[in-house]
């Protein structure tokens, strides 16, 4: 199906919001927020598919988590919070910790076993622990990365909130929202009490964008990122399910994108690695058709 996405890209270039173009992904993870024709269509398709899909396996979840982590670290803006994925992951972490505790309590109370076999049982325990540590590290790094972005763009997010009808709850988890709110409050209190209240009235705002230098800093969507094209749903679904995927003459599948400044249309082939400005591939990344590396 040939869809003209020029208008979408034009929209992207015009305003620098990140929220309203959040497209869906397959599965029960993120929610559907698309507001344009394309978004609706794709959303409906995938929502239908979602109802018949099974819950993702732990391995799949782990890979999704890694993808989300990598994306988040490389991306100049905050990506959507994968609510369900995180909930599942955290639950699994807790279960695993209980399990390890049980095993480690259990085996060493049994003293009739000889030393050699008791020690031999330690090795699988060690592997489990090491793996759990790694997972915890990934989650920790992911959340910390997001928090640092929240801190960096806190004024910007507030602006988003007031401008868009769509709440921030899609972008941030409830805890992150709370963090954002509270941190902003105390920071404002600090800045107000030390500096801003001593200022003449026209300079007392903290988000004043009319002076010579704008005070609110948004994410730099034009920064370069490395991107790898995976295909629909991170390469897990068959290529024909995605209407935006085209086939060229040699039978290779690709996504067409349009680079505004060069006025050039580029073909991003599946499994290809490119270096582009983020705004060019933003939609693809958010649609889980490409990942940042």
């Amino acid at each position: 199906m040939d869809i003209d996405i020029d208008d979408i890209l034009a929209e992207l270039d015009r305003d620098t919001t990140a929220v309203d173009q959040t497209l869906t992904s397959q599965g029960n993870d993120t929610t559907v927020v698309g507001s344009d024709a394309v978004g609706d269509l794709v959303a409906k398709q995938q929502a239908a598919a979602a109802q018949t899909a099974a819950p993702p396996s732990p391995v799949q979840d782990f890979n999704d988590l890694l993808v989300a982590w990598r994306n988040e670290r490389m991306c100049p803006e905050i990506l959507a919070y994968p609510h369900l994925l995180m909930a599942r992951t955290l639950r699994r972490v807790q279960q695993q910790m209980e399990h390890i505790e049980c095993v480690s309590m259990g085996f060493y109370e049994d003293e009739t076993r000889d030393a050699a076999s008791a020690v031999a049982n330690k090795l699988p325990l060690l592997c489990m622990e090491a793996d759990l540590e790694r997972l915890k590290f990934v989650v920790r790094s992911y959340i910390r990365c997001r928090l640092s972005k929240v801190d960096k763009f806190s004024l910007y997010l507030r602006q988003l909130d007031t401008q868009q009808p769509v709440p921030l709850t899609e972008l941030l988890s409830s805890k992150e929202l709370e963090y954002h709110e509270r941190h902003f409050t105390i920071l404002l209190k600090l800045l107000n009490s030390t500096i801003l209240k001593h200022m003449p009235p026209e300079l007392q705002a903290i988000d004043d964008n009319e002076g010579s230098v704008p005070m609110v800093e948004g994410p730099d969507l034009a920064s370069f990122v490395f991107v790898r094209v995976t295909g629909p749903d991170l390469g897990r679904s068959a290529p024909d399910t995605d209407p935006t995927l085209e086939i060229n003459d040699e039978g290779v599948r690709f996504y067409p994108v349009y680079i505004q400044e060069l006025r050039e249309e580029v073909e991003l082939t599946v499994d290809g690695i490119y270096v582009m400005r983020y705004n060019v591939v933003q939609e693809l990344v958010q649609a889980r058709k490409a990942i940042l590396i």
Binding site: K136, R140, I143, R144
Partner: peptide, 11 residues
Amino acid sequence: EFTDIDLSGSL
């Protein structure tokens, strides 16, 4: 929910 993860742990 994040107690197990120890957000201020090692990065």
